[in-house]
Every structure is written in structure tokens, then in C-alpha cells.
């Protein structure tokens, strides 16, 4: 059995049940307006609530709205992209464009910097064994810049830089080994298993950086790789 068949068999376990279908249709029938979101139809009919309670709810709604605004505008790494409401009577093709999520593939580091809105520091791929690797430069909507390296043998490495200090690696695995090393005065967290590390995360106070090499490398290689960025 090939992996394709195994993937198909695994995914076949995800099925819409009759109960789910009924729930969904209830939601569809109760859908109101254009701004459908979450499970519609959960609130139906009148609820009798005192005037004081109404004021509390109003206040809470305003507070939640304020929190929402702060969250959407003020937190680095947020990539919530507002959806555009589909046209009520639009054609099939135009209505398919109702939501936007885009990653821009750039030609080079210059274009990546331009799209990201800051100068992206590019690591020296030679230092971590990706000399001559194919590079993809990707700009994300919130300013995250990513360079993906694909070597001839198919192995890959991912480098990311983004405004802020939050871990931008997207790697939430648990690793047996977590070490801190100092590279040109910058504290760098290395994660991996045993003496082989697959991920480095660091920040310079203004930007967050991560470099992931799934095949793993020893500490010496990581020192050189990170130094090729922090030394700039």
C-alpha cells in the first residue's frame, strides 16, 4: 500500500455524520445577513433580561470590541485577514474571491525586504550546508519574511524574520534538548534531540528570527549559521 493509499484511508475516517448534517442545515436555515460566522442559529427567540443586565452586556460588548481592535492592530504576528463579503447576487467566480489570504513569492532578498517593509537579513546558506540550494523568498501579509532552502537531496531549511520578539518558527513540537548559546552577544535557543538540534530561535529586541533544519545539525554548525545573521 502506497502512502497515497494510506493517506486516503486515514482521511476516510473523517466523515460527515447524519447528526452533523442536521446541525449544519439548521445553521444554514437560520443564517442571517451576509456576516455569517461560527454556528448560526444558536440564539433564537427573545430573551428577557433586565435593564441593568442590558447595560452590562452593552459594556461587555464595547470592551470586547476594544479588545478585538487592540488584538487585530497591536499584536505582532497576527495574520487575521478580514474577509470581504461576497456579493449577494454575484457570479460564482466573483463570489469565490470573498476571502483573502495571500503569501507573495518574491524574486530575491531585495523584493522580500520591500514587501516585508524592513531590511531582511539573509543567513549564509553555506554555513548550514545549503550551498547552492534553491531558495524561495516568501512575504506574508503581517510582515513575516521567510526563506526556504531546498537542497538537491530534497532536504529543506526554513529561515524566518519578523517584527517583534515572539517566536515565529511555527514549530510547536516538544524537544528533548533545549540549549541556550551565545552568538555575538545574542542569546539563541537551540531545540532538538540529543546533541542534534533542528531549530534555532532568537531575537535582537526589534525582530524575531528562527532557523529550522529538520535533518538536524550539531551546535557548531548552528553557531556559524546564526552568526551569519547576527554578525551583519
Amino acid at each position: 500500500m502506497t502512502l497515497k493509499n494510506k493517506y486516503e484511508e486515514a482521511m476516510d475516517h473523517v466523515k460527515m455524520t447524519d447528526e452533523m448534517q442536521a446541525r449544519i442545515m439548521t445553521g444554514v436555515r437560520n443564517a442571517q445577513g451576509k456576516a455569517a460566522g461560527g454556528r448560526s442559529g444558536e440564539f433564537r427567540g427573545h430573551i428577557h433580561i433586565s435593564r441593568n443586565t442590558r447595560m452590562i452586556i452593552t459594556f461587555a460588548a464595547v470592551a470586547a470590541a476594544a479588545l478585538l481592535v487592540v488584538s487585530v492592530t497591536g499584536i505582532p504576528g497576527n495574520r487575521v485577514v478580514p474577509e470581504q463579503a461576497g456579493s449577494q447576487a454575484g457570479t460564482a467566480d466573483s463570489s469565490m474571491d470573498q476571502a483573502v489570504w495571500s503569501v507573495t513569492e518574491c524574486a530575491d532578498i531585495g523584493e522580500l525586504s520591500e514587501k516585508a517593509g524592513y531590511t531582511v537579513k539573509e543567513p549564509d546558506a553555506d554555513t548550514f550546508g545549503f550551498k547552492g540550494a534553491v531558495k524561495s523568498y516568501l512575504a506574508y501579509p503581517d510582515g513575516l519574511a521567510e526563506i526556504e532552502y531546498t537542497a538537491d537531496d530534497g532536504s529543506t531549511a526554513i529561515y524566518r524574520m519578523s517584527p517583534g520578539e515572539e517566536d515565529n518558527s511555527g514549530d510547536y513540537n516538544s524537544y528533548d534538548a533545549v540549549s541556550q548559546i551565545n552568538v555575538n552577544g545574542t542569546s539563541v535557543a537551540l531545540k532538538g534531540n540529543g546533541s542534534i538540534y533542528v531549530l534555532a530561535i532568537w531575537t535582537d529586541g526589534s525582530y524575531a528570527y528562527s532557523l529550522g533544519i529538520p535533518k538536524g545539525e550539531g551546535q557548531e554548525i548552528w553557531q556559524k549559521a546564526v552568526s551569519s545573521v547576527t554578525g551583519k
Binding site: 487585530v72 504576528g77 495574520r79 503569501v103 521567510e146
Partner: peptide, 17 residues
Amino acid sequence: MYRTELYCEQGYVAGRI
């Protein structure tokens, strides 16, 4: 696990509230 996306849990929670 690599994700190409980051998240905003605060925005999600506030949005749902």
C-alpha cells in the same frame, strides 16, 4: 511542526466574545 501561519488567539477570543 512547521506552520506557515502565525495566530492571534487574543483576537480569536475577543472576536468570539
